[in-house]
């Protein structure tokens, strides 16, 4: 009995020792030298591994940030400036602050605005649908509504509204990682400046058809009438291929184009409702000064706010 016990304990101890020695040498032989700063940088990353920075996950971001001579062109859209500041501190370099961005859906072809012309019966994937045909409405530029953006979003920030069949972005959750932009085969989604107090203007349409054709397909389509281009005091709006585009770096949020647009293709987001519709629209600063109580009210002017 004792002998059995003794032998068992001895054999196992010996085995353990031998294996430990082997492990020790293997670990030394195959050791990978790594910059300790990589771990430090990784520790301040959000850890979403969304790939929004263009690298394969947060670890790859950290590796590249450490390797690169400066942080130019390296930006974590999820963590934003706060995380970039921490990364810069760890690495002892300077970082330029970037304006926060948000994903914007540039299509307003809801079921109501854009009547369906066919019934899609294939796989619920925009990619498959786009390869098959121009879409189940008269507009071949608009949203296909199968939710590839929703599937691509690692933060649950973009969802298809079952009523309008259009994606809606939750700007609180959106980190502007750009996954939805890549996923959308129609190129509808754009990353735009979040804007002061989250207020921003954009043309919610991608239709490049002539005005009449576009209008026939969708009542909220941009018809390329150029009224917005003419009215814009800052030269922020250009109309190309029958489609208007607002350059958010130039836009001063005066909302003159919004008032002018005959099809309400231009959207103004998070502006407080205007008390009286005056002949000359007040500037954004004036509006903000007049109503300091309501800055947090997130009201989409043209769209019904979800829930």
């Amino acid at each position: 009995m004792t002998n059995t016990l003794l032998f068992t304990v001895l054999t196992l101890t010996l085995l353990g020792l031998v294996l430990a020695v082997i492990l020790f040498f293997v670990a030394r032989r195959f050791r990978v030298e790594e910059d300790p700063r990589i771990d430090e940088v990784e520790s301040v990353m959000p850890g979403a591994n969304c790939g929004g920075c263009g690298f394969a996950g947060c670890r790859a971001f950290a590796e590249n940030a450490v390797k690169a001579p400066s942080l130019d062109g390296i930006f974590c859209p999820v963590g934003g400036n706060a995380v970039m500041k921490k990364v810069a501190m760890k690495l002892g370099v300077e970082v330029v602050e970037k304006a926060p961005m948000v994903a914007v859906v540039r299509c307003n072809g809801s079921c109501e605005n854009r009547p369906r012309t066919s019934v899609y019966d294939g796989t619920a994937s925009c990619k498959v649908k786009n390869a098959l045909y121009s879409g189940d409405t008269g507009c071949r530029y608009g949203c296909l509504g199968c939710g590839d953006c929703e599937k691509a979003c690692p933060f649950g920030a973009i969802r298809i509204n079952p009523e309008t069949l259009l994606p809606e972005v939750d700007e609180e959750l959106c980190t502007a990682c750009g996954n939805c932009v890549k996923a959308c085969p129609k190129g509808i989604i754009e990353l735009r400046n979040k804007g002061p107090k989250n207020r921003r203007m954009f043309v919610s349409c991608m239709n490049k058809d002539k005005g009449g054709v576009a209008r026939k397909a969708c009542s909220a389509a941009c018809i390329g009438c150029r009224k917005c281009e003419k009215v814009c005091p800052f030269g922020a709006i250009t109309v190309e291929d029958n489609l208007s585009y607002i350059d958010f770096t130039k836009c001063k949020l005066c909302r003159k184009c919004f008032d002018e647009c005959p099809t309400q293709a231009i959207h103004a987001v998070n502006f407080p409702p205007r008390p009286v519709k005056s002949a000359s629209a007040p500037s954004a600063e004036a509006v903000a000064a007049k109503e300091p109580v309501l800055p947090k009210a997130e009201t989409t002017v043209t769209e019904k706010k979800e829930e």
Partner: peptide
């Protein structure tokens, strides 16, 4: 299962 729908796109 719509097997071919995805395979077709992936093939391309």
């Amino acid at each position: 299962i719509p097997l071919l729908d995805y395979i077709r796109g992936a093939k391309g």
